[in-house]
């Protein structure tokens, strides 16, 4: 007979330990299909680790892949804390990328000190603006934001494709649906020589620290946490619900928009319709693995990115499909969610 007794409070060691145990479990479970595919399990994981961080190149590739995930993960973490379930980071990322291209590919001229902040600001505003309508609809009319933000993703992606065939299309692009390139002086600088890792990663780290301070130290952060946990009591205590939710929505959408700017102005240099490899959705996994804690978003994003980058290497060598990465990430999400149960409850076996 197994029973669950609620714990009064959980220690930090328990929370971190449970999460690590959950990740270990996810990898152990992933060993089963690996073995079934005939791959040597130990060597496969070793290759994954090598591929994710064994060399400077591998490490920077992982961090490059983690960069958009940090920003979209943070976007989800901040919004989910206020029970604003923003599933639209993918669309907000494309909105941000379009704004970055519109501003940064020659419409404004100037030096990097003007153009880089301008590109980032335009992207953040575009992402934030996209989040306003779902937020107002949710607070005022009770429209489910999961549905509205999710559907807006497809709308924005179609708009982006239309723009790439129209106003944003590069006339020198040889007919390909891609935008004009971002000016060199509007690009985020690389931070490791001859590697693809760029300033967007530092932007992500900074955003996590700022979000952490905001959530724990500011009036807005306390308002956000109060509204998310018990909106009735928050309203009773005089906390304005709509402005607080609008602030959260703008923050979340803005962060996802920054992810778009970081990808076009840090990595690709121009916009295409396949800019994001599901970074908006993967950000939700990152946020959950991080327990919605801004500072934990960084390791969670690096972990998820490492799995994807490492799995590419591994699949090339041992001949297993790199879909194993999706499987591991999915298992990690499930295991982390289950581990939350063990943090909240003490399990007794009678």
């Amino acid at each position: 007979m197994i029973r669950f007794e609620p714990r009064a409070r959980a220690s930090l060691a328990l929370i971190v330990g449970a999460r690590l145990a959950a990740l270990a479990t996810a990898f152990a479970l992933a060993a089963i299909p690996l073995a079934a595919a005939g791959a040597p399990v130990g060597r496969s994981f070793w290759l994954m680790l090598q591929g994710a961080g064994g060399t400077l190149f591998a490490l920077t590739e992982t961090l490059t892949r983690a960069t958009p995930l940090i920003l979209t993960g943070l976007a989800a973490a901040v919004a989910f804390r206020a029970r604003l379930f923003n599933i639209g980071a993918e669309g907000q990322l494309y909105a941000g990328a379009m704004a970055a291209v519109a501003v940064g590919s020659g419409a404004v001229s100037g030096g990097p000190l003007l153009l880089v902040p301008l590109v980032l600001l335009a992207a953040a505003l575009a992402g934030a603006a996209l989040m306003l309508v779902p937020t107002v609809l949710k607070v005022r009319l009770g429209v489910d934001e999961v549905v509205t933000t999710l559907l807006l993703n497809f709308v924005v992606l179609l708009v982006a494709q239309m723009m790439l065939e129209g106003p944003l299309k590069d006339p020198m692009g040889g007919g390909w649906p891609q935008s004009e390139p971002i000016l060199d002086q509007a690009m985020l600088p690389p931070i490791v020589e001859r590697m693809r890792l760029h300033g967007g990663f530092l932007l992500g780290l900074l955003a996590c620290v700022v979000a952490h301070v905001l959530m724990t130290r500011s009036v807005l952060g306390l308002r956000i946490r109060a509204v998310g946990e018990n909106a009735t009591a928050a309203a009773y205590a005089g906390i304005p619900i709509l402005p607080t939710m609008l602030a959260v929505g703008a923050l979340s959408g803005g962060l996802a928009g920054l992810a778009g700017a970081s990808e076009v102005a840090g990595l690709k240099g121009y916009l295409t319709a396949d800019l994001s490899r599901g970074f908006g959705y993967a950000g939700i996994v990152v946020a959950m693995v991080a327990g919605l804690q801004p500072l934990a978003v960084v390791p969670a994003a690096i972990l998820v990115a490492g799995v994807f980058v490492g799995a590419d290497t591994m699949s090339r060598t041992v001949g297993v499909s790199n879909y194993i990465a999706d499987l591991i990430v999915a298992l990690a999400l499930v295991c982390v969610l289950v581990s939350g149960l063990f943090v909240r409850f003490r399990v007794r076996i009678a």
Partner: peptide
């Protein structure tokens, strides 16, 4: 339901 936010601390609920 109306008086407190359960997961916030006593100090935070006093300040809210």
């Amino acid at each position: 339901h109306e008086g407190v936010v359960p997961s916030l601390s006593i100090a935070e609920n006093l300040a809210i």
